Amino acid sequence: MAGRTAATARRLRLAAELRKLRERAGLTATEAAAAVGTSSGQLSNVETARFGVSADRVRAMAHAYSCCDQALVDALAGMAGDRTKGWWELYRDVLPPGLLDLSELEHHAGALRTAYTAHMPGLLQTADHARVVFRQVVPELSPPEIEHRVSHRIKRQEVLYRADPTPYRTIVHEAALRMEFGGRQVARQQLDHVLRMAELDHVQVLVIPFAVGAFPGSGQSIGYASGPVPQLDTVHLDQSHGPVLLDAESQLAKYRTLLDRMEATALGAEKSREFIRTLLRNL
Rank of each mutant, 00 (worst) to 15 (best):
S250F: 06
T126K: 05
A62S: 09
R4W: 03
S221Q: 15
T126C: 03
T5V: 13
S226G: 09
K20N: 14
H119N: 11
L21V: 05
T48G: 05
W88H: 04
Q42S: 05
L18W: 09
R135Y: 08
G219A: 10
T84I: 08
G182T: 10
G98Y: 09
L191P: 04
R24P: 00
H173K: 02
K20S: 14
V58E: 08
D74S: 10
T30Y: 02
A269Q: 09
P243E: 15
L90G: 07
E31S: 10
F210K: 01
V36G: 04
L102A: 10
Q125V: 12
Q136I: 03
R281W: 03
V159G: 06
L21D: 08
H152D: 11
L123C: 11
D233C: 02
I208N: 03
E174W: 12
V229I: 10
A198Q: 03
E31C: 01
A62R: 00
Q190T: 14
R83A: 13
G81Y: 10
R196W: 01
N45Y: 06
R10I: 14
D260R: 05
R10Q: 15
C67H: 01
E47K: 01
Y255I: 13
T170S: 07
P228H: 13
D69T: 08
A75N: 05
Y65M: 07
L141F: 07
W88S: 06
A115H: 13
I171N: 02
K271E: 15
E140N: 00
G110A: 09
A34C: 00
A266L: 13
P144W: 12
S39Y: 10
F275S: 01
H236E: 03
Y224Q: 00
S218E: 12
A248Q: 15
V53S: 03
I276R: 01
V73C: 07
R19P: 02
L195W: 04
E31D: 14
V194K: 00
S151M: 11
R13W: 05
Y255M: 06
I276S: 04
G110M: 08
V194N: 03
R169H: 10
E23A: 12
D192A: 15
R50S: 11
A9I: 08
G98V: 12
G122R: 02
F210S: 04
I154E: 12
K20H: 14
A29H: 03
A176G: 06
I208V: 15
L232D: 05
T170D: 08
D233S: 01
S54D: 13
D82S: 06
T126I: 08
Y224K: 00
Q190K: 05
L141W: 08
N282Y: 00
P97V: 14
M1V: 11
A2C: 00
C68Y: 02
A77N: 02
A25C: 08
P97F: 01
N45Q: 14
T48C: 06
L237P: 01
A15C: 08
G242S: 10
G122Y: 06
P167E: 12
V203N: 04
A214T: 13
T234K: 01
T48D: 09
L246N: 12
A211P: 02
R59V: 15
L160M: 06
I208E: 07
G183P: 04
S250E: 15
W88M: 06
M262R: 08
D164N: 07
G52S: 14
V46M: 14
P209Y: 13
L99F: 14
H119T: 11
E199P: 00
L76S: 03
Q185Y: 01
H236L: 09
E145C: 04
H119L: 15
L259Y: 09
R281M: 12
